[in-house]
């Protein structure tokens, strides 16, 4: 079966982090993270703000580089990739952001098409000449997320929930193996939060794309993910099934009961 949006590669895509650290100046944002994510998993990444969750996802996408350690995907050392190979890796590990990070002055379809920039042919795309196939894929993705009717609207005319769905469509047309969602629902109201989480779960289950999702809310993690990973002060403090997140564990993750209340 060849769904136009399904992942193209079939090789092993287990994501392995080996002792990954990242410092900003003297501050260590991530400290010796070792983590393995199997192909097709949906993993929640928990932790207080500032615990290093965003840094982790940015590192995996290689928007920033690790100061120590290595990131592997299957047989590839992701942390060593350069040039075209690096850009291809970014295409394979699509990101979704808390603030949506759409280009506000471009219309929806163009925003989604930016997800096709890493696909050949690349040069004509500099002057806006995407192929018809690119457009088919983009409209497919928009339809899948119920956003096709907004295709020609400017991105900043949409509500937060709508913008996040456009961002997911952009991630989908990249034809990724992994989706890295950085607090995808933190700026959304409860109804839209659920819609976005549903969409991510649907993508995970029906397209077999691995999803790593930074979450602020423990209940959402319990509802949508089987596995949770937790960070505190840059260190990995929990890795296991969501069912294992009892009060004692949460107290370690969130430090105090006040913060715990905030997380619920």
């Amino acid at each position: 079966m060849s769904h136009p949006l399904s992942s193209m590669n079939t090789a092993d895509a287990t994501l392995n982090l080996r002792g990954v650290s990242r410092s900003f100046g003297n501050a260590k944002a991530l400290d010796g993270i070792t983590l393995s994510v199997r192909d097709g998993e949906m993993v929640a990444v928990l932790g207080r703000s500032g615990a290093g969750k965003s840094t982790l996802l940015n590192l995996i996408n290689r928007l920033i580089d690790p100061t120590e350690g290595e990131i592997w995907c299957g047989e590839r050392n992701v942390s060593q990739l350069r040039g075209r190979a690096l850009l291809d890796w970014r295409r394979e590990s699509a990101m979704i952001f808390q603030r949506f990070n759409l280009v506000s002055r471009l219309n929806v379809i163009t925003n989604v098409l930016t997800g096709r920039l890493a696909h050949a042919p690349r040069l004509p795309k500099l002057i806006g000449r995407f192929t018809d196939h690119d457009r088919d894929v983009a409209i497919d993705a928009l339809e899948a997320l119920g956003m096709a009717e907004f295709a020609l609207r400017r991105a900043d005319e949409l509500s937060g929930g709508q913008q996040q769905r456009v961002a997911i469509a952009r991630a989908l047309v990249q034809q990724p193996r992994i989706i890295l969602a950085d607090e995808p629902v933190a700026s959304l109201d409860p109804v839209n939060s659920r819609a976005v989480m549903e969409a991510l779960r649907h993508i995970n289950q029906h397209r077999g794309i691995t999803v790593l999702c930074n979450l602020h809310s423990v209940p959402l993690a319990r509802e949508y993910c089987e596995r949770a990973v937790a960070l505190a002060k840059g260190k990995l403090v929990y890795d296991g099934p969501v069912s294992g997140l009892d009060d004692a564990t949460l107290a370690v993750i969130y430090g105090s009961t006040d913060a715990l209340a905030e997380a619920h």
Binding site: H3, R129, D132, R135, D136, I139, D140, A148, L152
Partner: peptide, 18 residues
Amino acid sequence: MTKDNIRRRRDDLPELYP
């Protein structure tokens, strides 16, 4: 998605194509 479907949509949404 079949070729016919794609063709139909290209006709339906011409403003999204060159």
